[in-house]
Simulated assay, not measured.
Amino acid sequence: MDVDGVLNAFERELGPSFMTVYVVRWPIRWQPAVIDRLRMLLLRPGVEGAWLTTWLEERWLLDELEQVLGLDGLMPHRASHPAVQAIDGGSRIDSRFDAWATFVPESQHWWKLRAADVLTDQLRPARFAWADDELTLSTRTPVGRWRPGRTHNQLLLRPDPMVGLSEADLRRLEDWVSEGHGGGEADAVGILVRDLIDGLGPTLVAALAGETDLRLVQRWTDGVAPFPTAGLRERLACAHRVWRRVAAAEGDGVAREWFVASNPWLQDDTVVAAIAESRLTEVSIAAQALVDESWSG
Protein backbone atom coordinates (compact mmCIF):
# COMPACT_ATOMS: atom_id res chain seq x y z
CA MET A 1 0.00 0.00 0.00
CA ASP A 2 1.06 3.53 -0.84
CA VAL A 3 0.55 6.45 1.58
CA ASP A 4 0.19 9.79 -0.25
CA GLY A 5 -2.90 9.83 -2.45
CA VAL A 6 -4.10 6.56 -0.87
CA LEU A 7 -4.27 6.90 2.93
CA ASN A 8 -3.33 10.58 2.79
CA ALA A 9 -5.69 12.63 0.61
CA PHE A 10 -4.30 15.52 -1.46
CA GLU A 11 -7.42 17.71 -1.30
CA ARG A 12 -6.95 20.43 1.32
CA GLU A 13 -10.62 21.11 2.06
CA LEU A 14 -12.41 17.86 2.87
CA GLY A 15 -15.67 17.00 4.61
CA PRO A 16 -16.32 16.09 8.25
CA SER A 17 -15.53 12.41 7.64
CA PHE A 18 -11.82 13.34 7.37
CA MET A 19 -9.29 14.11 10.08
CA THR A 20 -5.93 15.89 9.76
CA VAL A 21 -2.95 14.90 11.90
CA TYR A 22 0.76 15.53 11.49
CA VAL A 23 3.60 13.06 11.18
CA VAL A 24 6.57 15.31 11.93
CA ARG A 25 6.02 18.03 9.30
CA TRP A 26 3.65 16.16 7.00
CA PRO A 27 -0.14 16.71 7.24
CA ILE A 28 -2.09 13.46 6.92
CA ARG A 29 -5.71 13.86 5.81
CA TRP A 30 -7.36 10.52 6.51
CA GLN A 31 -10.76 8.92 6.97
CA PRO A 32 -11.20 7.01 10.26
CA ALA A 33 -14.02 4.91 8.76
CA VAL A 34 -11.73 3.75 5.94
CA ILE A 35 -8.87 2.99 8.33
CA ASP A 36 -11.21 1.00 10.58
CA ARG A 37 -12.34 -1.15 7.66
CA LEU A 38 -8.74 -1.58 6.58
CA ARG A 39 -7.86 -2.72 10.11
CA MET A 40 -10.64 -5.32 9.99
CA LEU A 41 -9.25 -6.58 6.71
CA LEU A 42 -5.68 -6.77 8.00
CA LEU A 43 -6.84 -8.67 11.10
CA ARG A 44 -8.13 -11.54 8.97
CA PRO A 45 -5.98 -14.68 9.24
CA GLY A 46 -3.74 -15.01 6.20
CA VAL A 47 -3.90 -11.29 5.28
CA GLU A 48 -0.63 -9.38 5.69
CA GLY A 49 0.04 -5.71 4.96
CA ALA A 50 3.08 -4.22 3.23
CA TRP A 51 4.19 -0.64 2.60
CA LEU A 52 5.27 0.33 -0.91
CA THR A 53 5.69 4.10 -0.75
CA THR A 54 8.26 6.86 -1.08
CA TRP A 55 8.06 7.08 2.72
CA LEU A 56 10.33 4.01 2.71
CA GLU A 57 13.22 6.38 2.03
CA GLU A 58 12.87 7.55 5.66
CA ARG A 59 11.53 4.39 7.26
CA TRP A 60 11.29 5.72 10.80
CA LEU A 61 8.48 8.01 9.62
CA LEU A 62 6.37 4.94 8.84
CA ASP A 63 6.60 3.86 12.49
CA GLU A 64 4.94 7.12 13.57
CA LEU A 65 2.43 6.98 10.71
CA GLU A 66 1.35 3.51 11.82
CA GLN A 67 0.80 4.77 15.37
CA VAL A 68 -1.12 7.85 14.24
CA LEU A 69 -3.45 5.81 12.01
CA GLY A 70 -3.76 2.87 14.41
CA LEU A 71 -2.06 0.44 12.02
CA ASP A 72 0.86 -0.51 14.26
CA GLY A 73 1.45 -4.25 14.11
CA LEU A 74 -0.75 -4.68 11.02
CA MET A 75 1.76 -3.74 8.28
CA PRO A 76 4.61 -6.19 8.96
CA HIS A 77 6.27 -5.96 5.55
CA ARG A 78 8.10 -3.08 3.87
CA ALA A 79 9.18 -3.04 0.26
CA SER A 80 12.68 -2.09 -0.84
CA HIS A 81 13.65 1.47 -1.81
CA PRO A 82 16.54 2.52 -4.10
CA ALA A 83 18.17 4.74 -1.46
CA VAL A 84 17.25 4.35 2.21
CA GLN A 85 18.13 7.23 4.50
CA ALA A 86 19.22 6.68 8.11
CA ILE A 87 17.85 8.90 10.84
CA ASP A 88 21.42 10.13 11.52
CA GLY A 89 21.76 11.33 7.91
CA GLY A 90 23.51 8.38 6.30
CA SER A 91 22.32 6.66 3.12
CA ARG A 92 22.23 3.05 1.88
CA ILE A 93 21.92 2.29 -1.86
CA ASP A 94 20.02 -0.88 -2.80
CA SER A 95 21.85 -2.63 -5.64
CA ARG A 96 18.70 -4.51 -6.69
CA PHE A 97 17.61 -1.31 -8.45
CA ASP A 98 19.58 -0.68 -11.65
CA ALA A 99 20.91 2.65 -12.87
CA TRP A 100 17.74 3.21 -14.93
CA ALA A 101 15.44 3.27 -11.90
CA THR A 102 13.39 6.47 -11.87
CA PHE A 103 10.82 8.15 -9.66
CA VAL A 104 8.73 9.08 -12.73
CA PRO A 105 5.65 6.80 -12.69
CA GLU A 106 5.08 7.17 -16.45
CA SER A 107 8.34 5.29 -17.09
CA GLN A 108 8.72 1.54 -17.52
CA HIS A 109 11.69 1.93 -15.13
CA TRP A 110 9.52 3.35 -12.33
CA TRP A 111 11.17 2.17 -9.11
CA LYS A 112 7.92 0.86 -7.62
CA LEU A 113 7.54 -1.70 -10.40
CA ARG A 114 10.92 -3.18 -9.50
CA ALA A 115 10.12 -2.92 -5.77
CA ALA A 116 6.85 -4.81 -6.31
CA ASP A 117 8.74 -7.58 -8.12
CA VAL A 118 11.32 -7.83 -5.31
CA LEU A 119 8.61 -7.84 -2.63
CA THR A 120 6.56 -10.61 -4.22
CA ASP A 121 9.68 -12.67 -4.91
CA GLN A 122 10.56 -12.42 -1.21
CA LEU A 123 7.12 -13.11 0.25
CA ARG A 124 5.70 -15.49 -2.38
CA PRO A 125 2.09 -14.50 -1.57
CA ALA A 126 -0.70 -16.69 -2.86
CA ARG A 127 -2.54 -13.50 -3.88
CA PHE A 128 -1.44 -9.88 -4.07
CA ALA A 129 -3.34 -6.58 -3.88
CA TRP A 130 -1.69 -3.22 -4.52
CA ALA A 131 -3.24 0.23 -3.94
CA ASP A 132 -1.38 3.21 -5.42
CA ASP A 133 -2.74 6.43 -6.93
CA GLU A 134 -0.07 6.44 -9.68
CA LEU A 135 -0.51 2.92 -11.04
CA THR A 136 -2.36 3.75 -14.26
CA LEU A 137 0.14 6.45 -15.25
CA SER A 138 2.28 3.67 -16.76
CA THR A 139 -0.37 2.25 -19.10
CA ARG A 140 1.44 3.52 -22.24
CA THR A 141 4.60 1.63 -21.34
CA PRO A 142 5.22 -2.10 -20.91
CA VAL A 143 4.91 -2.75 -17.18
CA GLY A 144 4.62 -6.54 -17.19
CA ARG A 145 2.01 -7.91 -14.84
CA TRP A 146 1.49 -4.65 -12.92
CA ARG A 147 -1.55 -3.33 -14.77
CA PRO A 148 -4.54 -2.04 -12.77
CA GLY A 149 -7.44 -4.46 -12.71
CA ARG A 150 -8.70 -7.60 -11.04
CA THR A 151 -8.03 -11.29 -11.39
CA HIS A 152 -8.50 -13.99 -8.76
CA ASN A 153 -4.82 -13.79 -7.79
CA GLN A 154 -4.16 -10.08 -8.20
CA LEU A 155 -5.98 -6.79 -7.56
CA LEU A 156 -4.48 -3.41 -8.44
CA LEU A 157 -6.39 -0.33 -7.30
CA ARG A 158 -5.79 3.28 -8.26
CA PRO A 159 -7.71 5.51 -5.79
CA ASP A 160 -8.59 9.11 -6.58
CA PRO A 161 -5.56 10.89 -5.04
CA MET A 162 -7.62 13.92 -4.02
CA VAL A 163 -9.71 11.84 -1.58
CA GLY A 164 -7.57 8.72 -1.20
CA LEU A 165 -8.81 5.21 -0.58
CA SER A 166 -12.61 5.27 -0.40
CA GLU A 167 -15.15 2.97 1.19
CA ALA A 168 -16.06 1.81 -2.33
CA ASP A 169 -12.39 0.86 -2.87
CA LEU A 170 -12.46 -1.00 0.45
CA ARG A 171 -15.57 -2.91 -0.64
CA ARG A 172 -13.77 -4.01 -3.80
CA LEU A 173 -10.78 -5.08 -1.74
CA GLU A 174 -12.94 -6.89 0.85
CA ASP A 175 -14.88 -8.73 -1.87
CA TRP A 176 -11.66 -9.77 -3.56
CA VAL A 177 -10.08 -11.01 -0.32
CA SER A 178 -13.25 -12.92 0.55
CA GLU A 179 -13.28 -14.97 -2.67
CA GLY A 180 -13.27 -18.53 -1.39
CA HIS A 181 -12.66 -17.41 2.20
CA GLY A 182 -16.11 -16.55 3.58
CA GLY A 183 -15.14 -16.99 7.26
CA GLY A 184 -12.30 -14.51 7.20
CA GLU A 185 -14.23 -11.51 8.49
CA ALA A 186 -15.76 -13.53 11.34
CA ASP A 187 -12.24 -14.53 12.39
CA ALA A 188 -11.15 -10.86 12.24
CA VAL A 189 -14.07 -9.83 14.46
CA GLY A 190 -13.08 -12.55 16.92
CA ILE A 191 -9.50 -11.27 17.12
CA LEU A 192 -10.67 -7.69 17.52
CA VAL A 193 -13.20 -8.50 20.26
CA ARG A 194 -10.66 -10.60 22.17
CA ASP A 195 -8.26 -7.63 22.17
CA LEU A 196 -11.00 -5.32 23.43
CA ILE A 197 -12.08 -7.72 26.16
CA ASP A 198 -8.46 -8.09 27.28
CA GLY A 199 -8.15 -4.31 27.51
CA LEU A 200 -11.59 -3.17 28.67
CA GLY A 201 -13.36 -6.25 30.00
CA PRO A 202 -16.52 -7.90 28.62
CA THR A 203 -18.96 -5.51 30.36
CA LEU A 204 -17.58 -2.38 28.67
CA VAL A 205 -17.28 -4.15 25.32
CA ALA A 206 -20.93 -5.19 25.57
CA ALA A 207 -21.90 -1.61 26.46
CA LEU A 208 -20.12 -0.02 23.49
CA ALA A 209 -21.64 -2.71 21.26
CA GLY A 210 -25.10 -1.91 22.64
CA GLU A 211 -25.57 -5.52 23.85
CA THR A 212 -26.86 -6.72 27.22
CA ASP A 213 -25.93 -10.39 26.83
CA LEU A 214 -22.30 -10.83 27.91
CA ARG A 215 -22.35 -14.43 26.71
CA LEU A 216 -23.11 -13.26 23.18
CA VAL A 217 -20.15 -10.87 23.22
CA GLN A 218 -17.87 -13.60 24.56
CA ARG A 219 -19.04 -15.97 21.82
CA TRP A 220 -18.07 -13.46 19.12
CA THR A 221 -14.47 -14.29 20.03
CA ASP A 222 -15.10 -17.86 18.87
CA GLY A 223 -16.91 -16.92 15.67
CA VAL A 224 -19.95 -19.01 16.66
CA ALA A 225 -22.47 -16.34 17.67
CA PRO A 226 -24.71 -14.50 15.18
CA PHE A 227 -22.38 -12.33 13.14
CA PRO A 228 -22.39 -8.62 14.13
CA THR A 229 -24.06 -6.23 11.69
CA ALA A 230 -22.01 -3.91 9.49
CA GLY A 231 -22.79 -0.94 11.78
CA LEU A 232 -21.70 -2.88 14.86
CA ARG A 233 -18.50 -4.00 13.15
CA GLU A 234 -17.72 -0.33 12.44
CA ARG A 235 -18.24 0.55 16.11
CA LEU A 236 -16.04 -2.33 17.28
CA ALA A 237 -13.32 -1.40 14.78
CA CYS A 238 -13.36 2.23 15.93
CA ALA A 239 -13.18 1.16 19.59
CA HIS A 240 -10.26 -1.13 18.81
CA ARG A 241 -8.36 1.58 16.93
CA VAL A 242 -8.75 4.29 19.56
CA TRP A 243 -8.09 1.84 22.41
CA ARG A 244 -4.76 0.84 20.88
CA ARG A 245 -3.89 4.44 20.03
CA VAL A 246 -4.58 5.79 23.52
CA ALA A 247 -3.09 2.77 25.33
CA ALA A 248 0.11 3.02 23.28
CA ALA A 249 0.47 6.71 24.12
CA GLU A 250 -0.80 6.83 27.71
CA GLY A 251 -0.88 3.26 29.05
CA ASP A 252 -3.67 0.73 29.60
CA GLY A 253 -4.90 2.31 32.85
CA VAL A 254 -5.37 5.76 31.34
CA ALA A 255 -7.01 4.22 28.27
CA ARG A 256 -9.59 2.37 30.39
CA GLU A 257 -10.34 5.52 32.39
CA TRP A 258 -10.64 7.54 29.17
CA PHE A 259 -13.31 5.16 27.87
CA VAL A 260 -15.57 5.66 30.90
CA ALA A 261 -14.82 9.25 31.98
CA SER A 262 -16.90 12.29 31.04
CA ASN A 263 -15.20 13.80 27.99
CA PRO A 264 -15.41 17.49 27.00
CA TRP A 265 -14.77 16.58 23.35
CA LEU A 266 -17.96 14.46 23.43
CA GLN A 267 -20.27 17.00 25.09
CA ASP A 268 -19.31 15.40 28.44
CA ASP A 269 -20.52 11.96 27.37
CA THR A 270 -18.27 8.94 27.77
CA VAL A 271 -16.38 7.34 24.92
CA VAL A 272 -18.36 4.13 25.48
CA ALA A 273 -21.66 6.00 25.09
CA ALA A 274 -20.48 7.90 22.01
CA ILE A 275 -19.35 4.70 20.29
CA ALA A 276 -22.64 2.99 21.14
CA GLU A 277 -24.37 5.94 19.42
CA SER A 278 -22.05 5.63 16.36
CA ARG A 279 -20.47 9.06 16.89
CA LEU A 280 -17.25 7.61 15.57
CA THR A 281 -15.70 10.73 14.01
CA GLU A 282 -16.14 12.59 17.31
CA VAL A 283 -14.46 9.69 19.14
CA SER A 284 -11.53 9.76 16.72
CA ILE A 285 -11.08 13.50 17.30
CA ALA A 286 -11.27 13.01 21.08
CA ALA A 287 -8.62 10.27 20.96
CA GLN A 288 -6.28 12.42 18.90
CA ALA A 289 -6.83 15.34 21.27
CA LEU A 290 -5.76 13.20 24.21
CA VAL A 291 -2.69 11.89 22.43
CA ASP A 292 -1.79 15.45 21.40
CA GLU A 293 -2.11 16.46 25.07
CA SER A 294 -4.81 18.99 24.22
CA TRP A 295 -7.51 17.15 26.17
CA SER A 296 -8.66 19.19 29.15
CA GLY A 297 -10.03 16.21 31.11
Score class of each variant (00 low, 15 high):
residue 1 M to C: 02
residue 1 M to H: 05
residue 2 D to V: 08
residue 6 V to P: 11
residue 9 A to C: 10
residue 13 E to R: 14
residue 18 F to N: 09
residue 24 V to I: 12
residue 34 V to N: 11
residue 35 I to Y: 06
residue 40 M to R: 13
residue 42 L to N: 05
residue 43 L to F: 13
residue 43 L to Y: 14
residue 45 P to L: 09
residue 47 V to L: 10
residue 51 W to Q: 08
residue 55 W to K: 07
residue 56 L to P: 00
residue 56 L to F: 12
residue 59 R to A: 07
residue 63 D to C: 02
residue 66 E to K: 02
residue 67 Q to Y: 09
residue 68 V to T: 08
residue 73 G to A: 10
residue 76 P to A: 12
residue 79 A to N: 03
residue 79 A to K: 03
residue 80 S to I: 05
residue 80 S to A: 14
residue 81 H to N: 02
residue 87 I to L: 10
residue 94 D to N: 13
residue 98 D to W: 12
residue 102 T to K: 07
residue 103 F to T: 13
residue 105 P to I: 12
residue 106 E to P: 07
residue 110 W to Q: 11
residue 121 D to S: 15
residue 123 L to A: 13
residue 128 F to G: 00
residue 128 F to N: 01
residue 131 A to Y: 03
residue 140 R to D: 14
residue 141 T to P: 01
residue 142 P to Y: 13
residue 148 P to S: 09
residue 152 H to G: 07
residue 155 L to M: 04
residue 166 S to M: 01
residue 168 A to P: 00
residue 169 D to M: 08
residue 169 D to E: 11
residue 171 R to P: 01
residue 173 L to I: 06
residue 176 W to G: 00
residue 177 V to N: 00
residue 183 G to H: 09
residue 183 G to V: 07
residue 193 V to S: 12
residue 195 D to Q: 11
residue 196 L to M: 11
residue 204 L to Y: 02
residue 205 V to E: 07
residue 210 G to P: 04
residue 212 T to R: 02
residue 214 L to Y: 02
residue 217 V to G: 01
residue 222 D to T: 14
residue 225 A to I: 01
residue 226 P to H: 03
residue 229 T to N: 01
residue 230 A to R: 09
residue 232 L to R: 11
residue 240 H to S: 12
residue 247 A to N: 01
residue 249 A to D: 13
residue 249 A to Q: 11
residue 250 E to Y: 00
residue 255 A to C: 14
residue 268 D to P: 03
residue 269 D to C: 09
residue 270 T to I: 04
residue 273 A to I: 03
residue 276 A to R: 14
residue 277 E to I: 01
residue 278 S to D: 13
residue 280 L to C: 11
residue 280 L to S: 15
residue 283 V to F: 05
residue 284 S to A: 15
residue 294 S to T: 14
residue 295 W to Y: 09
